[in-house]
């Protein structure tokens, strides 16, 4: 079938079925609406702590997970809502977790920064920059030792690439040829510090050279480009050829967290990136290649709106954890 397509057909159009592509766009909408719903809930005082929103990074999250099945693992970051949705999580239980409810993914113990869905292979967001990198390598070691065939995708930001854990993890994954793909979502800023100021190399992907693994930089707002790079990296991992590093250039529209006053970037820069909205680009691509009509896409967006509205309702009505159970799940069996 690929040979029937025009030469410049995007990878994703060639690689995935229309249903898969529409489902991917739907997930991107779901992430966008989830983040907006979370922000709205925060503003209304329904959410207890802070949060790190990934609006603008939807193509990176969904594109990176296209090649993964439920048996595959991901490790995520403090900006992890998108990864969680992309890996197939139920937004109702995600909202319930945000609202601190017993029905949340972490039964109200983790909140935004530790959102996880272990059944779907999401080993958890992480509050420590770089914290997930060695864990992802461990998950890959398990997969290799136990022969599960699973691949682990390790999400981290540009900030983590200067942590020792990054270098130790990439080195070990490489020397042991482990099935792990390191996805650096480079949104240009570690909190307020730009990569130009924090990182010695211009392209983080070139750090792969130091660990003898392939490293590519892709437009993280281009769903197809992300999925193409990931397709190759996941295939390499599954084939037992070892890890890869994918640098996904993207941008968060919002501040680092809810306390960010945005003093380190210009309005022009933000507007420029918003003009490259990954969702608009994905929708245009699907229309352009006859995968979906504008009406269908509007339907996907409306469906995402409904799902988020229902999820927030579900979360609001959930039970709070029992105070008496504050020490539950510290250990598998309760100890004094």
């Amino acid at each position: 079938m690929p040979d029937l397509l025009p030469e410049n057909t995007p990878f994703a159009i060639a690689r995935y079925t229309p249903d898969e592509l529409k489902a991917a766009l739907r997930k991107m909408y779901l992430i966008r609406k989830f983040e907006e719903g979370a922000e709205e809930s925060y503003t209304r005082g329904l959410i207890h702590g802070t949060m790190h929103l990934s609006i603008g990074q939807e193509a990176s999250a969904v594109g990176a997970c296209m090649a993964l099945g439920d048996a595959d693992k991901i490790t995520s970051t403090h900006r992890g809502h998108g990864h969680c949705v992309a890996k197939g999580a139920d937004v109702s239980r995600m909202f319930a977790e945000f609202f601190g409810k017993e029905s949340g993914y972490c039964r109200g113990r983790g909140g935004s920064m530790h959102i996880a869905d272990v059944e779907k292979g999401n080993l958890g967001a992480n509050g420590i920059v770089g914290g997930g990198l060695p864990i992802a390598v461990g998950a890959a070691l398990s997969a290799k030792r136990l022969g599960t065939g699973a691949v682990t995708v390790c999400f981290f930001g540009d900030g983590a690439n200067n942590e020792g854990a990054f270098h130790e993890a990439l080195n070990m994954a490489a020397i042991w040829k482990l099935p792990v793909v390191f996805v650096c979502e480079n949104n240009k800023y570690g909190m307020s510090t730009s990569t130009e100021r924090s990182t010695a190399v211009r392209r983080i992907a070139t750090r792969a050279d130091a660990y003898a693994m392939p490293g590519v930089t892709v437009d993280g707002n281009d769903f197809s480009a992300v999925s193409e790079a990931m397709d190759a990296a996941v295939a390499r991992a599954r084939a037992g050829e070892g890890p890869s590093l994918v640098e996904s250039m993207t941008y968060r529209w919002r501040g680092h967290s809810k306390s960010d006053r945005n003093r380190y970037r210009s309005k022009e820069e933000i507007a420029d990136w918003m003009a490259r909205d990954p969702i608009t680009r994905m929708a245009d691509m699907l229309v352009e290649h006859g995968i979906a009509t504008r009406e269908e896409i509007a339907g996907l967006e409306a469906g995402a709106d409904r799902e988020i509205a229902e999820a927030i309702e579900f979360a609001k009505t959930g039970e709070n954890p029992k105070v008496a159970e504050v020490t539950r799940d510290v250990y598998t069996e309760a100890v004094q």
Binding site: L123, P134, G138, A139, L141
Partner: peptide, 11 residues
Amino acid sequence: GVAVGAAMTGL
């Protein structure tokens, strides 16, 4: 960290 990740995933 690798040991922790491995322990979380079956080893």
